[in-house]
Design a protein around this nucleic acid. Sequence first.
DNA 1: TTGTATGCGTTATCAT
DNA 2: ATGATAACGCATACAA
Lengths: 359, 359
Amino acid sequence: MGVKTVVTIREVARAAEVSIATVSRVFNDSASVTAETSRRVRAAAQRLDYWPHTGARSLTTSRTHAIGVLLPDLFGEFFSEVIRGIDHGARAEQLQILVSSSHAHTDDIVAAARSLRGRIDGLIAMVPEKGSSARVRQIARRFPVVLLNPRQRVEGCASVAISNFDGAFAVVQHLIAIGHYEIAILKGPDGNVDAEERLRGYQEALAAAGLRPRPALEIDGDFTESAGYRGGAALLAGPTRPTAVFACNDYMAIGLLGALNDAGVDVPGDMAVAGFDDIAMARYVSPPLTTVHVDAYELGERAARALISRLQAPQGTRPENAVLPATLVVRSSCGSSQVVAADAREGFTSSRRSRSFRS
Amino acid sequence: MGVKTVVTIREVARAAEVSIATVSRVFNDSASVTAETSRRVRAAAQRLDYWPHTGARSLTTSRTHAIGVLLPDLFGEFFSEVIRGIDHGARAEQLQILVSSSHAHTDDIVAAARSLRGRIDGLIAMVPEKGSSARVRQIARRFPVVLLNPRQRVEGCASVAISNFDGAFAVVQHLIAIGHYEIAILKGPDGNVDAEERLRGYQEALAAAGLRPRPALEIDGDFTESAGYRGGAALLAGPTRPTAVFACNDYMAIGLLGALNDAGVDVPGDMAVAGFDDIAMARYVSPPLTTVHVDAYELGERAARALISRLQAPQGTRPENAVLPATLVVRSSCGSSQVVAADAREGFTSSRRSRSFRS
DNA sequence: TTGTATGCGTTATCAT
DNA sequence: ATGATAACGCATACAA
């Protein structure tokens, strides 16, 4: 009572009248142990309520059966799904996951990785800053690393990315296809990889259709709902009012929807709106949002699997670099009547998103 | 290249021409070390790119600076916010967090806790099953435990809970106050603590208002959107159509909204609908959902703080048992014109929920 | 099949 | 102020 009893392998050995080596063997059912001694050992362990010390074990085996996960943030559906995917992928191999967030800067990430030395077998990390290759390689010398959505591939690191460019290209192409040619963009924050790639997709889609870029229609944003609202107000007040707006993420699209609604602008009648990410509520806003679906769960699961395969692969195996598709999801916020609406497939009875909220 | 170099404290000692004890002292800036030797050691460590082995360190100090988090699931906003809260609370004390999910059954939880022995200093767990006290105490003998929303208090364990009962009571009381007396409930899954408490709150609110219970208006559900849809269909087909429905969570309320919409039933004109949880999209559905706000983030943060205080407290200190309020959030799905709508405070320019989705 | 002894990488207790 | 050296709890090579 109150005092934490610490039963070690030694007391079990004494109680079972064997050596600690034998107890160890029983618990790792490694070598040959008599059924009788095994029984005695297990009985003693049970009686003493012995819990093996995983930390000590991994010191000798140099295997922790844990992987580290370093993310810039934990806020929102995206990161939560990434973690869920990793957790699921890791569970298959009985790996524990050690998460740590608020690591936006590369130095932070290296420091965090450092503090993980000796407690993880490998690392999954999202490192958003430019020019981080050298320091990432420094981490990769210590343990296998899988990069999430890396800015560029790093030698010796596996990676799993989402094709932001293709997704943005597809959504803008869609807007053009249904007749728009004055298309604005609500940009993401400066320095953000995803934001940059989405902007590039927008620009190239315009170029591919022979439309010239319009700097006045490239509005600054930072992925927040309020930035979307402000961006909408700015567009309405500006000299040239676009007929369509591509918001670089759904939160901004939702804010934009709010601004347009407040201003009495009909969507999609007067203006088409598209987002990116396909967050859960994208279907529920009014009108339901045309957007680009990003499978964060799969991103995580694939990363976990990639890491596992690197943990098991012999030295020198080439790391894999996967890219997941980002697919256009047409709903009604762009009013494309000629395309079959995705919502037709999303009845309430479908299993999509219908899992329990709290178990 | 390819070969993972393992620099230990020993090589640093050799390179700096000191003993390993001195190197250790430098890195823990514990005892007195000459500025000169300290410099030499740090230089050597830097040159060799020495990363201390946290695992080995915690074997001698018997402190891991990590805490375990055991949850039944990682799906959805609730758990994700709990983790974010824990992460934030833990960061203040430089604690890493080791999360593991899919632990719904008590045996699972004990097994998981067991496998964490030696790698964590304490544990935050949600253990939903009944009759688990004895086994939870078994865990608590090993390290400090904080329970999330426990079925009952467990001797020696701290806990943080959400007052499901009060929240449900308040929302039903609200429905009664605005004139409803035929109030149905969409229940949560059998055996779920939250579901049971919310049902109890509903029943007692009716009783407190002198309304008699109507078993026909207690509809089975399982916290999924599709259950909400089916429940709505069942209510419309039933003998007595209620004028208001309290769904035990927001997902079911949203499904219900869908069913009513499909059937041409106006909300709140023909029927009032209320939910529970106040998930992010509750404001965005149409009509915006009156619900009960649950602060999952705070639940997590408080749990982390409670654990930290137990880690630092002397043996025998009484663990704290906190209960967080669940507060009514009135929007328009119940049509209570006499109450000031919460949305008036929720403009797009407010800071609520306006943080970045992806960093 | 079982026991003895060494080592994993560190901290901590002694000396000096 | 610094250096030997014994733990920490376990796995394992080797011996018996």
